[in-house]
Nucleic acid binder design. Structure first.
Lengths: 209, 209
DNA sequence: GTCTATAGCGGGATAGAC
DNA sequence: GTCTATCCCGCTATAGAC
């Protein structure tokens, strides 16, 4: 299953890019410890030695992939709230866009949770970019404004953001468990998540009214 | 950091139990691939060979720990809704209890997500117990009743349950990322989660009204 | 740049003394 | 039952031919 084709900038078609595509697939699925250089090489239809020729070590290759995944993941969260429209529109658009992205890339949030949580050092390394974008501040201002207009009750920005993300992401990363629990098959579960785009926006809007 | 002392039934104080306690700590923190038998032995202050004497293989030891973790985790989710009180009381009690448990055992949900998601076979193996308890059915009936009484709007059981769990669990498993994102230190973040016991119950109750 | 072959080691597992 | 010593495989990494 191809998870995602968005691979860095620099990479021209050729072995270097093939490696990145294969590595991303394998690391996403298996994590650092579970991934094997041999499997990446096989998937890229190349020799194992070439991986080291281009990227020196497993660790170095991994870091490239982590950066790629983080760069792709975080911008999606942001920049939805600075468009036009009512608060309800923005929230509706957020869930639609974000859950849509997660459905296309289910392994991405799981990877970030599982891997970054166990190697918090890496966070600091790759997190400066998104951090600086000032989303928190921007969101705070939006909330203030909506409260003034009476479109919502006052809610701490942290709570607003946490709930927004929790409701979107958790059903994706816990899919196997929740599937089992709710006795759904794969198709049914994905339909459920698809409905959540709408349904969760409604849920959220009611909660902040 | 001792995560949790609740270790199976059978285990008397002695090497067998020491191994389980150490193994649980290491597997919780590192996962199967990341865990080292040597580290478990060191932590249990025993020889590596003894691990194999008692549990034959890393895999076998791991299965014992997984079962222990699952057995301890799932009952907490259940059995909160069959007590007395109004719907609001039940929801408030749920978040209080569940988030409290998660704060005491932050690695447990992360472990279940990270490990079980990558070895779905294991789910089937250990999931029969909780599955059979009929929580879904029970919750459906509660919702029906509350809708009849006008205490809440009609909501699919799946949605109700997913949102309940998402709002509780996600902020715990994504702690390192959210901490960074919200620019909180460890203490501040835990306080935030503690407030969520109350605050999230309120959020949820508003959403289903 | 791309391959084959192999070094080197970490780590799970076992043999065997006590 | 508990230890030390060791086996042996799998995997990262490198040497070196082409």
């Amino acid at each position: 299953m191809v998870q995602n084709k968005k691979i860095p900038d620099s990479a021209q078609p050729g072995p270097e890019k093939q490696i990145l595509i294969a590595a991303k697939e394998v690391f996403l699925e298996k994590g650092f410890d579970g991934a094997r250089m041999q499997e990446i090489a096989d998937k890229a239809a190349l020799n194992k030695a070439l991986l080291h020729y281009y990227y020196r070590s497993k660790e170095k290759l991994y870091r490239v992939i982590v950066k790629d995944i983080m760069d792709q993941f975080f911008p999606v969260v942001f920049g939805v709230f600075d468009e036009t429209g009512s608060l309800s529109d923005k929230i509706t658009r957020f869930f639609d866009l974000y859950i849509g992205f997660l459905l296309d890339n289910p392994l991405v949030p799981q990877f970030i949770i599982a891997e970054i949580v166990r190697k918090p050092e890496m966070l600091m390394e790759f997190f400066s970019g998104p951090m600086e974008s000032g989303v928190i501040l921007q969101l705070s201002e939006l909330i203030d404004e909506c409260v003034r207009k009476g479109e919502m009750r006052p809610i701490p920005t942290e709570e607003f953001l946490m709930n927004l993300i929790s409701l979107s992401v958790f059903p994706i990363i816990a899919k196997p468990i929740l599937m089992n629990f709710l006795e759904k098959d794969d198709k049914e579960y994905n339909e459920l998540i698809n409905e959540r785009k709408r349904v969760t926006a409604d849920f959220f809007i009611r909660a902040i009214k």
